[in-house]
Write a protein that binds this DNA or RNA. Sequence first.
DNA 1: ATAAAACCTGGAGTCGACTCTATGTCAAGC
DNA 2: GCTTGACATAGAGTCGACTCCAGGTTTTAT
Lengths: 128, 128
Amino acid sequence: MMSIGQVSEQTGLSIHTLRYYEQIGLVTPVTRRENGHRTYSQEDVEQINFVLCLKKGGMPITDIKRYIELMQQGDDTVADRLNILRAHEAVVEQQMQELGKHLSFIRWKIDYYCEYHRNQLEQASTET
Amino acid sequence: MMSIGQVSEQTGLSIHTLRYYEQIGLVTPVTRRENGHRTYSQEDVEQINFVLCLKKGGMPITDIKRYIELMQQGDDTVADRLNILRAHEAVVEQQMQELGKHLSFIRWKIDYYCEYHRNQLEQASTET
DNA sequence: ATAAAACCTGGAGTCGACTCTATGTCAAGC
DNA sequence: GCTTGACATAGAGTCGACTCCAGGTTTTAT
């Protein structure tokens, strides 16, 4: 069991954000100690990481929230969740493809500028 | 030479957004016809696509703006621009790696749910 | 010549996702 | 016993990135 501070450290999310996510229903509310402090189980942390996984893939918070709600409704929603995951899979695949194209374009530009810069320096030195 | 509407079609950006980008200096102002309408050269469109390339890689608008400003200042800034591009290259590489991990996690989850769902259906049919 | 379509400007409004403020409780150490 | 630090809540504020609105001009088609 971990405190909110420890979870913040581990996930990279701020304490504020962790509470905010719980408040808006992006993650299921965690149990509390007698003093009211949140205490996170390993499962809770895994759910947070899953949410982050979807988020990094570009899924907006409202959609993630819908997914989490389906999870909470139990096994009857497995088919729906499967559909969402499949759609998201496709989105991420396309994103990676695009990123790959962008990356090679940037590399091409870097090479070009490298060359250009080298010539610049050379010219400066012969002008002495 | 293209009109703003045509560029909007081609880039996927709304007309609003194209004007907004020009206004905040994210792209260099294009020339106008006598009636004041914007007219985009091939180069202008290429610059917009380059900006989108950086943006899709997660670079915030203010940073892209700084890059464009360097471009406008001429050849003395090539070294600076190279640094920015190299840093961005690293960022995009890391992003792709992360996305790859997320993707395989999602796929794993899909497989898991698929199996689960198959069993669900089977059970339902034998219960008849 | 009149309506419709495509463009213009300046400025206000929206939206998603945090992030911070004010105020308060509780436990532990000096 | 009093301060310090980690936690709590409710609600306001911020920030990036658009997006829309009001009001106006110009070209195109009927």
